[in-house]
């Protein structure tokens, strides 16, 4: 098994963990964190699978950078919304 495939499998595992968290957890902050775990999993698959011929493929790296920017923006928005909710009912 190549290192790239190992990364990709770990990515799928992270993705599944994150998705499970979003579906099963009740607390909004935990769901936001779970979304970040899920996103990292998808990024890992993207970078891991594309490492063929030994070298790194630049295109998925650029995609992951874009994806990270999107994930940070989404997390910021989610946290801002969370702060507007009353403390007792998250």
């Amino acid at each position: 098994m190549s290192a790239g495939l190992l990364y990709a499998l770990a990515g799928v595992l992270l993705f599944a963990l994150g998705l499970g968290g979003i579906v099963l957890l009740r607390h909004a902050l935990r769901r936001i964190l779970a979304f970040n775990v899920m996103g990292s999993g998808a990024f890992l698959v993207l970078v891991g699978l594309a490492q063929r011929d030994g070298g790194a493929d630049p295109v998925p790296q650029a995609m992951v950078l874009t994806g990270i920017v999107v994930a940070v923006a989404a997390t910021a928005l989610a946290l801002a919304l969370l702060r507007r909710l009353p403390e007792d009912r998250p």
Binding site: A8, G11, V12, F15, G18, L19, I22, V23, A28, R31, I32, F35, M38, G39, G41, A42, F43, V45, L46, G48, L49, A50, V59, P60, M63, G67, A74, L77, A78, L81
Partner: peptide
């Protein structure tokens, strides 16, 4: 937002698998 993010996460994983293939 949470539904939308989970949905686009699934979409992104699909894109990753397609690029890998």
């Amino acid at each position: 937002l949470v539904v939308s993010l989970a949905a686009s996460g699934a979409y992104l994983l699909g894109v990753a698998l397609i690029y890998g293939s």
